[in-house]
Simulated scan of single mutants.
Amino acid sequence: MRCGRPICPECMTSASVGFQCPECIRAGRASVPAPRGTPPVRAAGRQWGVVTLTLIAVNVAMFVATAVSAYADGERPLDNHRSSLFLDLQLAPALVQEGGEDWRLLTAAFLHIGITHLALNMLALLLFGSELERALGRWRYLAVYLLSALGGSVAVSLFGDPWVPVAGASGAIWGLMGAFGVLAVTSRGDVRGIVTLLVLNLAVSILVPGISLLGHLGGLVVGVVAAGIVVLARRRTEWQGLCLLLLTAVLCVTALTVPTLAVLDF
């Protein structure tokens, strides 16, 4: 097909259907819509995981909310743990069992004492969470995370001092590390890296004061169990859901009805 323009053999360009003049080529390229770039939010979700980024956003939002509450209470914003909102949401086993404030079992996992505590936990969540979200799928990964957080709270409620408050996402993150170990074992991968990391974190939890070892170990154990359920029943979605719900019920009933068994000095 010809465009009607004067033909210059030296300027014509070979095409699949003959030859085209430069003006026709430019006009054709202009008529083709430019490819749309991926929105930054969607690109970040693909790279790091939608659920992981959402969990990080919730933790950051809770930190901001407690900082604002601290300022409103006459405290420094960075002393967010002194705010009335923080005190209403942190885990205090005595207030859960005797006061019926059962929401503390989960809300405490979204609180952090200071910006450093928040930054370290969110970095760990970004690194571990994004990989696990790809491996397990969004909803299974979210279930493992929340159950691990609940497991840490239950361990504190059972074995910790009922009047010592606890807060942080560390129990959930230890659960993610336990889930990594389960995946490594079931896929016959190298477990030395995750075992070394757990040992190092265990040493830090024991040696550094103010860290809840009970919360970490509780999250680890429940993370291993939850990930084991997901892996063993990976082809039976209904069994996965049923077993995870049963595990949730056992944890909740235990935390709400079983009194503190001992005060352990770690």
Score class of each variant (00 low, 15 high):
143 A>C: 03
79 D>R: 14
163 W>Q: 10
66 T>H: 09
104 R>N: 08
264 L>H: 01
142 L>D: 01
109 A>S: 15
164 V>P: 03
9 P>D: 04
169 A>Q: 05
33 P>E: 07
19 F>V: 11
243 C>K: 04
211 I>P: 00
93 P>N: 05
220 L>H: 06
185 V>I: 15
165 P>D: 00
249 A>H: 08
226 A>T: 02
226 A>P: 03
128 F>A: 10
128 F>M: 12
142 L>A: 08
223 G>E: 00
254 T>K: 05
164 V>F: 12
79 D>W: 13
174 W>H: 11
256 L>I: 12
91 L>G: 07
160 G>Q: 08
72 A>F: 11
210 G>E: 11
109 A>T: 09
139 W>M: 05
264 L>T: 08
27 A>F: 11
218 G>A: 06
237 T>I: 13
155 A>C: 05
253 V>K: 02
121 N>W: 04
82 R>D: 08
237 T>G: 14
83 S>H: 11
71 Y>D: 14
238 E>W: 15
34 A>R: 15
157 S>L: 04
241 G>F: 07
21 C>M: 01
195 V>W: 11
213 L>S: 04
14 S>L: 14
141 Y>M: 12
53 L>P: 00
235 R>S: 13
97 Q>C: 02
74 G>E: 06
181 G>P: 06
225 V>Y: 03
30 A>F: 12
142 L>F: 05
240 Q>W: 06
46 R>K: 13
12 M>D: 03
95 L>G: 02
214 L>I: 04
96 V>N: 10
151 G>S: 00
98 E>I: 00
64 V>Q: 07
81 H>M: 14
206 I>Y: 09
154 V>S: 06
254 T>H: 06
206 I>P: 01
107 T>S: 15
213 L>G: 02
245 L>C: 07
17 V>H: 14
28 G>D: 14
253 V>T: 05
21 C>L: 12
35 P>E: 12
60 V>S: 07
75 E>P: 00
90 Q>C: 13
168 G>A: 09
11 C>W: 14
77 P>C: 01
100 G>V: 10
124 A>W: 07
138 R>H: 08
149 A>T: 01
63 F>Q: 07
232 L>H: 12
247 L>Y: 10
86 F>W: 14
161 D>G: 09
